[in-house]
């Protein structure tokens, strides 16, 4: 698409060149404007992975919440040295001022030797599970960014096997 737009731009320039030197006769000339907007590709990178941390199994069902700012509630994380809780964070870069859609999945499954846990994701870009509208910072002509933080909740039970659980989720950013 990018190269296609570049071609359009080139064609527009050729057209403009063809129109401008209209005959140098005593007749009037008309100027048409040919507009095209070329914007840079959009990209998203993962800055930080999501980590709830380490928890002692609760004696009764307890939901642990990891906020979009990386703060844990519901239980207290232990042995955080080298294993501190953190929200996931992504940075989207593209053309300034452009409207984009951000899609964060609704859930992610964490698997471990003891089974599976389902994390319900929350994003500061808005509701998860469907595309959310956002606008890149800045204005057209320069790069714009948008940072997306993703937290979540995970229900723990006394019968959940101890061990490490992990999974992967993907966030998509697209121009509208």
């Amino acid at each position: 698409m990018f190269s296609f737009r570049m071609k359009l731009a080139a064609i527009a320039i050729v057209l403009a060149a063809a129109v401008a030197p209209a005959h140098a006769q005593s007749t009037a000339s008309t100027t048409a404007t040919a507009g095209i907007t070329v914007i840079q590709p959009i990209s998203i990178v993962n800055n930080k992975n999501m980590n709830f941390g380490t928890f002692v199994k609760p004696s009764s069902n307890t939901t642990v919440t990891l906020s979009n700012a990386g703060v844990i509630s519901g239980l207290t994380a232990v042995n955080t040295s080298g294993n501190a809780p953190s929200q996931a964070q992504f940075t989207i870069t593209g053309e300034g001022g452009q409207a984009i859609n951000i899609t964060v999945p609704g859930t992610v499954a964490l698997t471990g030797t003891g089974g599976s846990l389902t994390v319900t994701l929350t994003a500061d870009s808005g509701t998860t599970g469907s595309a959310q509208v956002a606008t890149l910072s800045g204005a057209i002509g320069s790069a714009g960014t948008k940072v997306v933080n993703v937290g979540g909740t995970v229900p723990l039970t006394a019968t959940t096997a101890s061990g490490a659980y992990s999974g992967t989720f993907t966030v998509t950013a697209a121009y509208q």
Partner: peptide
């Protein structure tokens, strides 16, 4: 085509038995 992009993150939690 540069109109969309994806990135993945891992999510993790550790459960340990009571002491």
């Amino acid at each position: 085509d540069g109109t969309s992009s994806t990135a993945s993150a891992t999510a993790a939690v550790q459960l340990i038995r009571p002491i």
